[in-house]
């Protein structure tokens, strides 16, 4: 009886080991790791303090600015991409960004990725950031210290086993310094247009966000923090749609931004960058853009 039970228990252990190995090595390739996704956002929100250069903005910033490329121009500086989905540019996030800068002497730069959406009423909610910030401590500990060791057991969806020739692939790599390297197959440069059309029918440009941005720029000038601004490239159609529906006047904004002490980085050939969905940059373009931004930051 006892021997039989011991055999059963050992048999189970061997079975678990064998089946785990089989499933792990035959699993369908995933677009991205959910465990790393969780780790990435928790790390960005809770464990990314004391930086020299911070990029702030929405998903166009966190997908479009490669911190590694920026670092190649600023080798000894700590660079963080603090972009969030639907991230707003408003006092709340400016305070967050400022608190993420290093306290010691040294280079201090905040770069704002200015999209019309980031200046809307909707973006003022900063829902993504707050959701990450308010995560219970136990979850934070689990995501940072436990989950990365469980990647062998990354969950598999049964539907992923079904081979689909027409499936959209959306691979994403999460970098510790806040950049999400991404691309899509097949690309559809008009994909994001409808959702932006819907978004701008429901929200408007916030005057409060614009004035808070300008106040922040002039305030930072007095504290020795250099503030840069740029408009993350998307696609020609998207920019046209955003400008028309939001009423965002880029030239007027640049003028007052500079009047308040900000440095505007003009990307002359913005539509030469490749966007996979009409809104976010292909990772190769993100690298090129980031290098260009860093070079221009060095010059100005």
């Amino acid at each position: 009886m006892r021997k039989g039970l011991i055999n059963k228990i050992f048999g189970t252990l061997i079975g678990v080991l064998f089946l785990s190995i089989v499933i792990h090595y035959t699993r369908p390739k995933k677009d991205y790791s959910k465990l790393m996704y969780d780790w990435f956002w928790t790390k960005k929100t809770h464990f990314s303090k004391s930086n020299n250069i911070i990029f702030l903005g929405d998903s166009r910033t966190y997908r479009g600015v490669s911190t590694e490329s920026v670092k190649s121009e600023f080798p000894n500086q700590k660079v963080l991409n603090l972009g969030y989905s639907s991230g707003g540019l408003n006092k709340y996030m400016f305070d967050v960004a400022y608190s993420f800068l290093g306290k010691k002497e040294g280079l201090k730069i905040i770069v704002l990725g200015i999209t019309p959406f980031s200046l809307t009423e909707e973006a003022r909610k900063n829902e993504h950031y707050k959701q990450e910030l308010e995560r219970p401590l136990a979850d934070v500990v689990e995501r940072i210290y436990v989950n990365p060791y469980l990647s062998f057991f990354e969950p598999v969806r049964l539907s992923d086993y079904r081979l689909e020739s027409d499936r959209t692939f959306y691979p994403q790599v999460f970098h510790e310094s806040g950049w999400v390297e991404s691309y899509k197959i097949p690309e559809n440069k008009r994909e994001a247009l409808s959702s932006y059309r819907k978004t701008f029918s429901e929200t408007v440009l916030s005057e409060k966000s614009v004035s808070e941005t300008l106040s922040f720029v002039s305030e930072m000038k007095n504290t020795g923090v250099k503030v840069y601004g740029f408009r993350p490239p998307s696609s020609k159609e998207m920019e046209k749609l955003e400008n028309e529906l939001s009423g965002f006047d880029e030239n007027e904004f640049i003028t007052i931004f500079e009047e308040n002490g900000g440095v505007w980085i003009n990307i002359s050939d913005r539509f030469s960058f490749d966007s996979y969905d009409g809104s976010h940059l292909h990772y190769q373009s993100a690298k090129e853009l980031s290098l260009l931004l860093a070079q221009k930051m060095k010059q100005k």
Partner: peptide, 21 residues
């Protein structure tokens, strides 16, 4: 049968590890 029971429990555990929602 012991073997079937071992395989059953092993499958349940492995399903929890890999196919959790």
């Amino acid at each position: 049968c012991s073997l079937v029971q071992s395989v059953e429990v092993a499958m349940l555990i492995v399903a929890c590890l890999f196919y959790r929602g």
